[in-house]
């Protein structure tokens, strides 16, 4: 559990850094937009949503560190083996399903639009590369 406590502290630091990065990115993009340096509109909702969620997570994690009962609840929720197994299965199913869908879409668009076909084929290629790379990596690691 002590190892989990230090992991939680690391997560708080990472979330804090990410929050700062998002805030800086939002401010930078907004000011560049106002000056006319970049065109288009910054998706404020995306940044605001991300910042709010990160801050809420940081507050929850800090509360968990201070209060033993909250910490134990957080620990159980994050390490419960059945929950982890469910997430792994869902992720595996989603990966395979996405590969199949991308494959079908690539084939369909090869008859309809060359640009869409090229984009989908590239996306499928990258996805397969990462998937197979992960399989090889975890096969060696475990």
């Amino acid at each position: 559990m002590e190892e989990f406590r230090s992991k939680l502290k690391t997560r708080i630091i990472l979330c804090s850094i990410l929050t700062v990065v998002l805030v800086v990115a939002l401010i930078t993009l907004q000011s560049l937009e106002r000056r006319g340096t970049i065109h288009g509109e910054t998706n404020i909702g995306f940044f605001a949503g991300g910042i709010i969620i990160l801050i809420m997570n940081i507050l929850r994690m800090k509360k968990a560190l201070k209060d033993e009962k909250s910490f134990k609840d957080w620990y159980i929720r994050n390490t419960d083996e059945r929950a982890v197994a469910v997430q792994l299965r869902a992720a595996n199913f989603t990966s395979l399903f996405t590969i199949v869908l991308l494959g079908i879409a690539t084939i369909v668009f090869s008859y309809i639009n060359n640009v869409a076909y090229a984009v989908l084929a590239a996306a499928l290629g990258i996805y397969m590369f990462i998937y197979l790379g992960s399989l090889i990596y975890f096969n060696k690691k475990m």
Binding site: Y75, I76, E81, R82, A83
Partner: peptide
């Protein structure tokens, strides 16, 4: 039991 085994009640 869940608390004693450090798992969720759902488990």
């Amino acid at each position: 039991l869940a608390d004693a085994l450090s798992v969720t009640r759902q488990t």
